[in-house]
Amino acid sequence: MINAAHGGNDLGLDVRLDLSANLNPMGMPESVRAAALASADCWERYPDPLCRELRKKLSEKTGADMENIVCGNGADDLIYRAASALKPHSALICAPTFGEYGKALRENGCKVREHILRESEDFALTERILGELSGADMAVICTPNNPTGMTVPPELMAEIAAECEKNGTYLLVDESFIGFTGREKELTALNCMGSHVIVLRSFTKIFAMAGLRLGYAVCGSADTSGKLAAAGQYWSVSAPAQAAGIAALGEEDYVRKTVEFIAEERDCLSRELTALGVRVYPSETDYILFRSIPQLGEKLLGDGILIRSCGDYSGLDGSFFRTAVGLHEDNEALICAVRRCLDG
């Protein structure tokens, strides 16, 4: 076994290049790092459990009422809060998608059904899902989806939200990677908010804040946000994470440069992998799903490069892999290594 349940070198493997975790290759903005360090004077006190200043800034950014926003220890924390607080009896999730949705729901006694994304459709979410929403207490949509990198068209998202609202179904939309698309305002489910919609966002990916841990949920009602807030631990967001988040919200130029960089490098990486005979699936974010020989992950690890094997994703097998879009030299190193592995 060459990787843990998620991307990132959690097992302490001897690697020279880790492309298994989908973090911004440009690194944490200096203003964010400085803000976290400058908060040291208050580390001896408990952090604000309500994240009031951060939530005020998020309200200004999203246009949502401050009382409808809940901050957490990463988006992952808020996934578990939603499952615990709302306690759906039945839920619909996609496959393949991020494994923590099903895990969190099942741990709270929920019966989980899967909507299968088809390889013949490049794993895109289509209108087929509309016929499967009935009977679910919660539906979970990830856009861009992990590990496929595909977004949900705004028109389809609006239809899904309307159907969920009609049925009284909670719609949990994870937008942790939407900042990389450059189309956040067009694609976001915030455009079709109803009382049962919950939109998750993460600072972890776009601002490379994996060690600080920060995410937030925008809920369609104060009642829902109150339930999520009550379900989590009281001091869920540390003082440095709150300070870093406030600083990150002002980094619009950094996000713009990231979007441009990722788009260029993603297209180049996709072309190069395709030229090697690898089946590459379309992506709109900072990672690529592709298909190759099942031994590729082990061979690359032997070369000191770690990518994400996707065999543990429902609907995929050991021939599927996900790689982050890295710096140009890192992407070139990956291409050279894949070429050696396939030639050998």
Rank of each mutant, 00 (worst) to 15 (best):
E132V: 01
A222E: 15
R106T: 14
L289V: 03
I116P: 09
A217E: 13
L212T: 03
L50P: 00
S309H: 14
A324G: 11
S31H: 04
L316D: 07
D286T: 04
G232L: 03
E132Q: 12
S84Y: 09
M66L: 08
T258H: 03
C341Q: 04
L58V: 06
D77R: 05
D267P: 00
P154R: 15
T62V: 11
L172A: 09
C268T: 11
R201S: 15
T97V: 09
K299F: 07
R340Y: 09
T181H: 04
P147Q: 09
Y234D: 08
S283G: 04
K299W: 04
Q242C: 13
D137F: 00
I69L: 10
Y101E: 15
D174K: 01
G12C: 10
A40L: 02
E251S: 14
A40R: 12
R266M: 06
A139V: 15
F98R: 08
G109V: 08
F203R: 00
A243D: 05
L86N: 11
A21W: 02
S238L: 02
A189F: 02
E67D: 13
L342S: 04
K57D: 11
A161P: 03
I116T: 14
Q233N: 05
V280Q: 03
V218W: 00
E44R: 12
Y254M: 06
Q242R: 02
D14H: 05
L273R: 00
V237P: 04
D76H: 11
T285F: 10
P49I: 08
K103W: 15
G109I: 09
L105W: 13
E264V: 06
R271E: 14
V325T: 03
L58K: 06
S20T: 05
P29M: 06
G182D: 06
V280F: 07
T188K: 01
